[in-house]
Design a binder for these strands. Sequence first.
DNA 1: TTTAGCACTCTGATTATGAGAGTGCTAATT
DNA 2: AATTAGCACTCTCATAATCAGAGTGCTAAA
Lengths: 349, 349
Amino acid sequence: MAFDMLDKRSKQVLYAVIQSYINSPEPVGSRFVTKKYPLGCSSATIRNIMSDLEDMGFLSQPHTSAGRIPTGKGYRFFVDSLMDTEKVNEGSEMSREFVGQFTRKLEGIKTDLNVMFSEVTNTLSIMSNYVGILIPPQPEKITFKRIDLIRYKGSNVVAILLTDEGIIKNRVLQVDPRFTQDDLTRIADYLNSEFSGFILDDIRGMLIKRVKDEKTLWDKLISKAIQICEQAISYSEDDIFVSGLYDVMDLPDFSNISRIKELSRAIKDKHAILKLLDEFSDAEGVQVMIGDENPVEDLKNLSIVTAPYKEGARPMGVIALIGPTRMDYLKAISMVDAVAKCVSKTFRD
Amino acid sequence: MAFDMLDKRSKQVLYAVIQSYINSPEPVGSRFVTKKYPLGCSSATIRNIMSDLEDMGFLSQPHTSAGRIPTGKGYRFFVDSLMDTEKVNEGSEMSREFVGQFTRKLEGIKTDLNVMFSEVTNTLSIMSNYVGILIPPQPEKITFKRIDLIRYKGSNVVAILLTDEGIIKNRVLQVDPRFTQDDLTRIADYLNSEFSGFILDDIRGMLIKRVKDEKTLWDKLISKAIQICEQAISYSEDDIFVSGLYDVMDLPDFSNISRIKELSRAIKDKHAILKLLDEFSDAEGVQVMIGDENPVEDLKNLSIVTAPYKEGARPMGVIALIGPTRMDYLKAISMVDAVAKCVSKTFRD
DNA sequence: TTTAGCACTCTGATTATGAGAGTGCTAATT
DNA sequence: AATTAGCACTCTCATAATCAGAGTGCTAAA
């Protein structure tokens, strides 16, 4: 979108309409603009400009004699070139205090990532009044640290997987009952010495390769070890963290039930959300998807703001806010940005 | 509620009204009753009876010239003495097939209780169209099996707690960095030999007592062990399992948003739900709470059907359905009953 | 005790009406 | 050429009026 496709005043008008509509979801009329955003011209002029903006697809009219409301394209232009980006930063300045406080809070609970992650989405949703989402690190990002295998009830074995990031997974596996605890300890030792420090996903590849290449070389124990390890690291339906559906119902955008259902449906399909958001984990900084820019059907009436969180330079996962297209983008963006930074900082230390 | 406070025909009329209203939430008129539930008398007679039933508090009128709808008291009488209890059992017969299938399904996933529990609430909510809830076993019900302590990153220790029921908890603790893995192993050995087989809650009591009574006797290691163990078994904000909020929105009872908000608020307060339902874990069989019989404010417009699940004879937790007071009690009761039996059966084996 | 009959009441859908808000166009102004 | 005042026009929304329909409660007869 070229910056100069609109003259200054058109931009001001567009800004005024969008800002006002974000503020309260009612069609914005020309007279209203002249009153609240004095641009030194009459309502008739504004009317002409608004008509042009409508022709260009930035605004639309609910009906002939109503004011204008922003279109997706309008919001997009707003986010890309109209929004006061200084205020985003300034917003960060202002929330430096928040960042400090929140980081300290996270420090205190980072030993249990589940607790920390749900704290993150809670804070996010409470502060923004939108739905907060966090995607935990996916297997392809996680570094294996060690595994422990513990005999348990008959032929069961509990496998406990520790990772560098502090993630702990446990899993109950079935093994040949003839395996003793000693056997299991040996298997674990082997796995720990071989694979510690590797990415989980890579390990899976390596394991499969080993089984193939050297089938005959490895004795039964090791072959079993590999199977066990594979099971233990296999995708464990990791939940995503979601919070704020309740509070979002207060927004006028969701005053009719079908909108709520739409949103619920969208976040119910955790797999789709995960797939969508995971793509942003490698992105640099905050990303915004507005309305039908969104590939997921149920999200076409909603907007998403995402930011990755990292451990050092390595991207780990994504946090996001989902709200109506009539979202306070400035607020949402600076919030997601700030929280992502807090999480990254906590991971670093 | 005395059985004979209503004559046979009054019961039939009450039954007809409630059944019809459960079937579709519209006030039931006298003529409608004569048509759909032929009782061998005219609509005028029905009118008189309905008027009496209203005086007795079983029915009420939304407005002067509308039909009648059941009151809480009406539903209570229905559940206690009107509902075709044979059909509850027959329902179980019919669902014997379901019980078999579902139990088999649970068998397959019982190694991971989290998976199993969420499968239970999912099935429950999908089949009933109400909100399914499961309270996992609380600390006072859980038998300690063993603990493992693993050094981890600096002064952290991962404590892994295994229980007889197959519950695995892990928890990251801070310890004096001078403790070696050997120390930790010794601590774990000590705890395992001392406490295996006891109830978690009792252990906590025993630990506190030991610290008090014999403070001087125990060396630093053991004192630390006790602390560790206490932390490890301490209440871990165990989530309750909830499912079905989305589908419940299809019910006409929740067509207006404030009802949805009410329900959301109720199930958001997991602590209240847990406290409420946990009281039913020792109850025998299915319990029903209708509307304002409910102690929780946000549930006064809703009904709950609960049943405990057990391991052998020992009650473990509760499963429940939450729905509108206009609930299909017959269906809900037989469903909760059947599912609770499936879970209990799975625990037994 | 039951019932037919009827007057009465309340709802909800439909229609009419008018104020209000806002537009688009035209002609005058800068 | 750009801006603006003025005005006719359009559409919505709230209010009120009307009326059919459903259901009741009561009375008098069976």
